[in-house]
Design a binder for these strands. Sequence first.
RNA 1: GCGGAUGUGAUCUAGAGGUUAUGAUUAGGGCCUUCCAAGCCCUCUGCCCGGGUUCGAUUCCCGGCGUCCGCACCA
Length: 550
Amino acid sequence: MPLDIYDKIMMLAKRRGFIYPAFEIYGGIAGFYDYGPLGSRLKQNIENLWRSFYLLKDNCVEISTPTITLHEVLKASGHVDEFTDLTVDCKKCKASYKVEGIIEEGIIVEDAVKNDRIKCPTCGAILKDPYPVNLMFSTTIGMGEGRAAFLRPETAQGIFTNFHLLYRYAREKLPFGVIQVGRGYRNEVSPRQGTIRMREFSMAEAEIFFDPKDKTHHNFDSVKDKELYLFDNEKEMKISMGQSVETKVINNQALAYYMYLTQEFLMSAGVDPKKFRFRKHASDELAHYAQECWDAELFSERFGWVECVGIADRSAYDLSAHIESSGTDMYAMRKYSEPKIVEVKKIVPKMGALGPLFKGKADKIKTVLENMELKESKKISVDIDGEILEIPDDCYDIVETKEKVAGEKFVPHIIEPSYGIDRILYCVLEHNYREIKKKGEEYRLLKLNALVAPIKVGVLPLISDERLVKVAKEIDKNLRNAGIATYYDEGGTIGRRYARMDEAGTPFCITIDHDTLEDNTVTIRDRDTTEQERKKIEDAVQYIKDKTSQ
RNA sequence: GCGGAUGUGAUCUAGAGGUUAUGAUUAGGGCCUUCCAAGCCCUCUGCCCGGGUUCGAUUCCCGGCGUCCGCACCA
């Protein structure tokens, strides 16, 4: 079989130090890859470019939380239950299935298991002994029993569990956004598509907290004429931001805005616009927490359309879950323009009467009474640990007071753009890989965008003449001191060195020749045109800086 | 997870039950060299792992792991 583009990219990636299979000397393990020197830097550059969009353009803040996450967090978030699939194998035809997927409609999984109602969809045999499969890596914290924990399947929960603190940090104003860049872990059943599906992967997530009554975005007007490439599972369309929200193709401004930001980011990272689209999730493929979700998909010649970014409206799901499960107040306040005066009828317990009558239970009764909604019925009874107690009239007063109410409490909604960095990185490599013929010979190059290229400039003395080498090394040092990633090379011929830089995706090369010694000029070679321009050394440095800084 | 195919330096590849396992590319050193993988000389790196059969296994058999294809899975 001829090598396809994936094979070629993985070959180049390994040879040039972008991507290696992890633990290869011990046989390797599916779903794990190492980033080599160039890959690491490319990944960092992509991540930092992403940060510049969210931290600077959108004014989010960044936090960093542990990858090991307490069981309680993921139980509350729904991952423990939703990530666990009851699986069953057919001994006859050796297939395995999710129980949920193959039982008759309307039957509960537990009942199906109990009553032998799971049939193999292929051969019809009755299937027995289902077993749970959880896609999260589990571990324990501490010695002995310890506390149950998982490696996080997403970075988002680390942001949610800090919401009340971050809300204070944002000085109690919505909307605000928090980002996190880090590793996530999923114990995939059979990861098979290189860095597209890894068991440990890098993700960049933003969680933007909104008042559910106001999902507008303050930048929306300035970009409302920009167009988005959308695919609603039937047809592709190009539609302006403003129109997409008006016609409810996209539910709200905020969602549309982060889609736009995503599109801009991916283009700056060097994605081919012809291999990009947003696809809307059908209702049956939505994650357990999502209300609406758009994926940014990038086209791979090997893998087809690959989901690289998910932009979901998670509504109040996560914060509500953590409020209920932890008891922490994670509400936000919608302040009235002026405080409202509200007349309130309150029950004020008389402890002098309650105490002697109910003794040890009096304190609990007091708490219940104080939090009770006052109803019309005359008799008041309370439920204390399952015991219904009637409270005589003389144990409390009903007091009418006027209270100032500053606003109403609500659970913020969350819009979550979530990026799979490794997938984006692979697609960027694939979209920018070129093969051309040079003098009849195969010639490979990576046309990486200068913003993300791991090496910004190759510094090359035309020949290994001592005088040229000396100047070249000096220029190289100055460039690095100016914060520009360089690669100094004096080995072999100049053509070979250009070729090396082309394969590494380096956008520029500075060549030091004999004229340099005369007049302090160098040539700058452009990777994509191979054309050269002669400039003063200082101008060349400035030129490279301008072209490559994020 | 199931079935099939497959595994030789960093990369691509030849090979046979038996001395020191091909060739090319890359990489390193040298000569040469005033702009796109030129040439010449030298050099480094390898039979996926474990077990079995055999006097002898990188080669045959079994298992594991990796990769690829199909099925299932991918919240």
